[in-house]
Simulated assay, not measured.
Amino acid sequence: MRIHKAGSRPTRRANPDYFTGTVWQDVIAEPEGSARAAALLVQFEPGARTHWHTHPHGQTIHIMSGLCLAQVRGEAVVELRPGDTAFFPPGIEHWHGAAPHSAMTHLAIQEAEGGVTAHWLEPVEDGPAKG
C-alpha cells in the first residue's frame, strides 16, 4: 500500500496550452506499473475551461462545487451542478469548465493508454462557453 498524506503533493497550475483561464489541479491517482487509472481534483476559476479534447478510454467528471458548463462537439452546452456526474465516451470531442460568473471544482477520472490520458485539440471559441 502507498499512502499520500494530505498536502504531500503540491497543487499545480494546469498547462495553459490545454486550458483557457486559470485552472488548478490536485493529483488523486496517477497511472503506474500496469495501472491505467488517473484522477484529478480540478478547480476552475470563473470562465476557465478546457480546450476541446478526447480521452482514449473516456472520462468521468463529478461536479463537487459551482456551475459546470460542458459540451460534446455538435451538441448544445449543458449545465452540471454539484452532485452531477457526466461520462464522455472514448474518442468523443468535448470540453468542460466553469460558468462565466462561478468557480467550479470537479473530480476527473480517466484511464491512460500508453501513458496518455487525453488528446488535446483547439481552444473553445468564446460563444459556447457563455452559456
Rank of each mutant, 00 (worst) to 15 (best):
S65K: 12
E93V: 15
I61H: 00
V27G: 03
E79G: 13
H62A: 14
S34K: 14
E125Y: 02
H94F: 09
V116W: 09
H96A: 07
S65I: 05
M1Y: 08
G58M: 04
G74R: 10
S34E: 15
A70R: 04
G127W: 14
A35F: 13
A108H: 08
A70V: 06
T20H: 14
P56K: 01
A118K: 11
H94T: 08
G58V: 09
A103S: 15
K5E: 11
V77N: 04
S102Y: 12
P31W: 00
P100G: 06
H57N: 12
E125A: 15
P89T: 11
L41W: 07
H55Q: 02
A118D: 10
T105I: 06
Q110M: 13
R9K: 10
G127R: 15
E93I: 10
G47V: 08
H96E: 07
G131D: 04
I92P: 01
A86T: 04
P82E: 10
G83F: 07
V23I: 13
V27P: 04
D126H: 15
M64P: 05
L40E: 03
A103C: 10
N15H: 06
W24A: 09
E30K: 12
L41N: 13
V23K: 07
L121K: 07
H53G: 06
P123S: 02
H106D: 10
A112F: 01
A86V: 15
H4P: 04
A112D: 04
H53T: 04
G7A: 01
V78A: 03
R36S: 14
I109H: 06
